[in-house]
Design a binder for these strands. Structure first.
Lengths: 249, 249
DNA sequence: AATCTTATAGTAATATTTACTATTAGAACA
DNA sequence: TGTTCTAATAGTAAATATTACTATAAGATT
């Protein structure tokens, strides 16, 4: 590890003579970006929304939708703006994952990126490439190409977060269509957690949470006995949260 | 919400004529800081390590140990360096919480701060104020004074994280002395989770995890039957992690 | 030696989870 | 129209885990 003195002298460009001697402007050399990990579920697989970069650096490579934050812009707003500009997606509620700040992660200068993630229902949105994005597409998580910057590890960590979260919060619902069957729900859980469950027990477990509302309607156009359609009972979930009851799958 | 065009024009200082017209240097106006939330447990209460600021802004106020990151310094290293410089604490393993980027959170300019947190055993470290810190002390979390910047909410979120984590990871051990009794352990859990447990059942639950090593030694100088002393069995925990067994309290 | 406090052991009732089996119902086809 | 397919739904008995207790043990203090 470099000595503190050496490090400082590299920064300030001349010999270091004391802590308070570094002019504060020397610290204002960073740029900040946001990167959005939008996860979806389709055809029995988890997908992530990627763009093809139509601008340097890493032009042509696939990447997370992300861009630099304006110096007078809040981070959350930046994430919302960037996602909309590049993919057309609006009204997507994202939460921060964490920040990535490797010194050499960006070729142009020191850029810290802040990760945001969201789970969405693939069929409720229609991504459309825009601005400097040459393309937008849902890419299978088991089959990711080489990505720009450190985006592969940003996705990996978001995924770890999802697997952790799915056990303690009813996040599955966000990834399914508005109405879904218990079979679909089970397939989703099995996919995320990479684990098989007993069908009858899975049903009991999920139903006993009291977070599903029976629509009284049935699947149609299936070549077998159709299953009941459910929706997520938001109200019941709010009540559960208020009571402080902690959800466990 | 401001229109994009207006926002841009504020940033670039002249009329906006198209996305690619903003020179990239305009984006490199940020500074980045790290703030360390060091939590400890002492005399039946959770504490956080705070400094008294001996420098502007917010001179004189209590604050988290934190400072600006050098433009050529990795975030983790910065956190380690800053903590050591201000409080003398070394070899503290911290993990990132999240970043805070409100536009007006710092009076000098646009400063994004990255939160780091750690749980430590109060009696294993000897904090000592240094550099521009006028003072270091363990402050009771139930009795926090007004803090500099947005540090109160950084602490609040770290605390929420701790309460979440304590249910799924054996973090309690980090906060206790190397050797501890089951009674101390129970008091800690009750304190963090603000909930009482049945003594006999708590013992069974904790022991059945198989993460405690019996030292065969006893408490001394207590005015009652002395309790057995335990240590955390790191090896057993590693094995548990390898097997992928998920810890639940 | 009596008394205090807290540790430790044990247990019975209750609740939850698990591993099953059995039955049901719509669609498709003969 | 009934036979067959597939997956949904219902039910249950054994095994496990949790909970709410009671009883006993042991060192320190008086």
């Amino acid at each position: 590890m470099k000595e503190k003195k050496e490090v400082l002298e590299e920064v300030i460009g001349h010999q270091f003579t004391g802590y308070y001697k570094i002019p504060i402007e020397k610290f204002f050399q960073f740029a900040v970006s946001v990167d959005c990990v939008i996860l979806g579920y389709h055809e029995n697989g988890l997908k992530v929304l990627l763009i093809q970069r139509g601008a340097e650096p890493h032009q042509g490579k696939m990447a997370l939708p992300g861009d630099l934050v304006y110096p007078n812009e809040d981070l959350e707003l930046a994430a919302t703006r960037v996602l909309k500009e590049l993919t057309g997606l609006d009204h997507v509620f994202m939460t921060q994952t964490r920040s990535y700040g490797q010194v050499d992660r960006h070729p142009v200068g020191r850029v810290i990126t802040v990760g945001y993630y969201s789970l969405i229902s693939v069929d409720r949105y229609e991504p459309l490439a825009n601005s400097w994005a040459d393309n937008v597409s849902w890419v299978d998580l088991d089959n990711l190409p080489g990505l720009a910057f450190d985006h592969t590890s940003i996705i990996d960590e978001a995924l770890t977060m999802l697997r952790e979260r799915v056990r303690h919060q009813p996040v599955g619902f966000e990834l399914l269509p508005k109405e879904f069957t218990l079979g679909e729900m089970q397939a989703l859980y099995e996919n995320i957690l990479n684990e098989k469950f007993d069908k009858a027990n899975f049903r009991k477990r999920i139903l006993s949470m009291g977070l599903l509302k029976d629509t009284k309607r049935m699947q149609s156009d299936v070549p077998h006995r159709p299953a009941r359609l459910f929706t997520f009972d938001k109200e019941a979930y709010q009540n559960l949260l208020k009571k402080g009851t902690n959800f466990e799958f």
